[in-house]
Structure formats: structure tokens, C-alpha cells
Amino acid sequence: MRVPPVIVVMGVSGAGKSTFGAALAASLGRAFLDADDLHPAENKAKMAAGIPLDDADRAPWLAAVSAAAREAAPVVVACSALKRAYREAILSDAPGACFVELVVPRAELKRRLAQRTHEFMSPALLDSQLATLEPLGADEPGLRFDDSTADGPALAADRAVRALREAVAASTPCFTV
């Protein structure tokens, strides 16, 4: 059973979108695209200063992400896609996309962020990201995935591939794994 041509791995900073997304792309034999690479310099500077992006900041970035995803399909994209409206913007440009929301407890997110350095994503922005996050709705295409990576990203990606194939086979729009 085939999976959608565009899979967007979504979640807040520290959820593991890039690590998990790259493993998922490898598991599927697809290209991987990190949406962070598409942020304009103004967005990066704002976030590096600890200032959360607003919808106006995100709109052109989301347009670039969805256009790049559509052009690169089949692809796995790491993109926060925190709000339903952001996911709808991606879907309008990349119809048939599917989302994999990485669900990670706040304490684990804080631990991960404390251990890494990022070009522009300040750990101070975690609270604003959590406040902005609208979990994937039951009527949205995709799945909510418990990213307990104790088994490692490759095994977690294999679990996600199986879950996505089952969802496609059952025509289930969204569920939790």
C-alpha cells in the first residue's frame, strides 16, 4: 500500500522533526526537506532574538515550504505546521499531503533543547510554540505519533511507515500511534 506523496513531520521545536523526518525519508527511499532551511533571514533573526513568529511572518515561509514539497514529491518534510491554518495552507499547495505529528512531553522537549544548539531557534521560544500548537485534528490527514525514540529513529520511522500504510488502507484520516 502506497503512502501519500508528501509527508510533513510536524511538531514544536525539539520534537525531533529533522531526525525523525530524515529517518522516515530513508525508510521510504524519498528525499528529505527541512523547512527551517526555507525561512527568510528576517524570520531567522527574529527567532534568534527570542521573538516568536506571527502569522504574517509564517505566511510566505509556508508558501515556500508547500511549493518546495510539491516540486520535490515524493518527499518527507520537517515543518512545525503548528496550527490547522498552516496545515491547510500546505494542503492547498500540496494536495494529498499527510501529516505526522510528533507528540513529545514538555519535560523531554526542554531536555532536548537544553542539549542542542540551533542556528536560530531559541529554547526560550518553546512556551510560545506549545501555546500555538493545535494538535492534528481527527478530520485532518495524518497521524499523531508518540515519538518515544528509545528504539532509535530508524525503528520509530518503520513504525510510522506501517501506521501510515494501515491508515491509507483503512481510509482513516487521523489516529494516534
Results as ranks from 00 to 15, higher is better:
1 M>T: 13
2 R>Q: 12
4 P>V: 05
6 V>T: 06
7 I>N: 02
9 V>L: 07
12 V>D: 02
13 S>L: 05
23 A>Q: 11
23 A>T: 11
29 G>V: 06
35 A>C: 06
36 D>Y: 02
36 D>W: 01
37 D>I: 00
39 H>L: 03
45 A>G: 07
45 A>T: 09
52 P>V: 08
53 L>S: 09
55 D>A: 13
56 A>K: 04
57 D>P: 07
57 D>Y: 06
63 A>L: 11
64 A>N: 07
66 S>H: 02
67 A>W: 00
70 R>F: 11
76 V>D: 10
78 A>L: 03
79 C>S: 12
84 R>S: 13
87 R>E: 02
90 I>N: 07
91 L>D: 05
92 S>M: 01
93 D>R: 15
95 P>V: 10
102 L>C: 08
105 P>E: 04
107 A>G: 09
109 L>I: 09
111 R>T: 15
114 A>K: 05
115 Q>I: 00
117 T>L: 01
118 H>L: 09
119 E>N: 00
121 M>R: 05
124 A>H: 06
126 L>C: 09
130 L>H: 00
132 T>S: 14
133 L>D: 08
136 L>W: 07
140 E>I: 11
142 G>I: 11
144 R>T: 01
146 D>V: 12
147 D>E: 12
149 T>I: 10
151 D>W: 04
154 A>F: 06
154 A>S: 09
155 L>E: 13
156 A>I: 04
157 A>N: 05
157 A>V: 09
158 D>C: 00
159 R>W: 06
160 A>Y: 02
161 V>Q: 04
162 R>Q: 15
174 C>H: 09
174 C>D: 01
175 F>H: 07
176 T>Y: 07
176 T>F: 04
